[in-house]
């Protein structure tokens, strides 16, 4: 039965993957990517990796779909046709896949008790966690304590992602909500200075430079100059 589920899920994954590649409509592709994440989450559940499945469902199917939709709102829904068939990437992918299949062909069978991963280190976690840390979920004790430092690094990675996105996308100082004439408006602090700088940026743009960075650095973001959610207050 489990084998059947495995095979079915894998086939579905493959179909979804190929579909994503074939789709030219990005909106549909994003949806399919969400499905892909859900399917892999299911696969993780079958493999008894519930924590991973949970994460995959929350991040892959949830947040990242929203973020991708956010991106689509900026860049449009249709993918440009590639100018020439991607022979080299296809070749690279095939070679990589081939090597992976070759390399894993002698790997110990999945889930077998004699596997190296079940012989070394992991048994210690299973046996000692209860006494060392006294919490039942060994995954948590590994993630937060035994290998807590890695988790700290991952937290830093997440933070780095924010810094990177903000560096790239955030324009100028952070937006703020203010009450203007009885209406809530979202404005930037120090707007007057901003206007001055916009002029300077305009002059600089003639030289092909990005000025103060407030110009639309992402291609295809027309009219992105206006301020976030000007009319948002209506609903407040």
């Amino acid at each position: 039965m489990i084998e059947f589920v495995d095979v079915a899920l894998l086939v579905l994954l493959a179909i979804t993957g190929v579909t994503i590649i074939r789709l030219r409509n990005l909106f549909a592709a994003v949806m399919m990517a969400g499905i892909y994440s859900l399917l892999s989450a299911a696969l993780f559940v079958v493999m008894d990796a519930v924590d991973v499945a949970f994460t995959e469902a929350a991040v892959g199917a949830g947040i990242s779909t929203v973020l991708m939709l956010g991106t689509l709102a900026l860049v449009g829904h249709q993918e440009k046709k590639p100018r020439r068939p991607a022979i080299v990437p296809l070749f690279v992918v095939l070679v990589t896949g081939g090597i992976l299949v070759y390399g894993t062909s002698q790997m110990p069978p999945f889930g077998h008790a004699d596997n190296p991963i079940h012989q070394h280190v992991a048994p210690y976690y299973l046996e000692e966690s209860e006494h060392d840390i006294e919490i039942p979920n060994v995954v948590t004790s590994v993630l937060s304590s035994y290998r807590g430092y890695d988790t700290m690094g991952e937290t830093a990675v997440v933070f780095t992602a924010m810094v990177g996105v903000l560096l790239l996308l955030a324009r100028g100082p952070l937006p703020r909500r203010v009450l203007l004439g009885g209406e809530w408006r979202t404005v930037r602090p120090g707007t007057t200075r901003e206007e001055l700088r916009a002029e300077a940026a305009h002059a600089l743009d003639a030289d092909g430079s990005d000025g103060d960075g407030s110009g639309g650095t992402t291609p295809g973001s027309p009219g992105s100059e206006d301020i976030v959610g000007e009319q948002g207050g209506k609903h407040g």
Binding site: I63, A73, L169, S224, D226, E230
Partner: peptide, 18 residues
Amino acid sequence: GVMVAIFYAFAGRRRLDP
């Protein structure tokens, strides 16, 4: 914080208000 910040950053590029 990061998830919402990234969402803000994307949303901030364009009006997402209803």
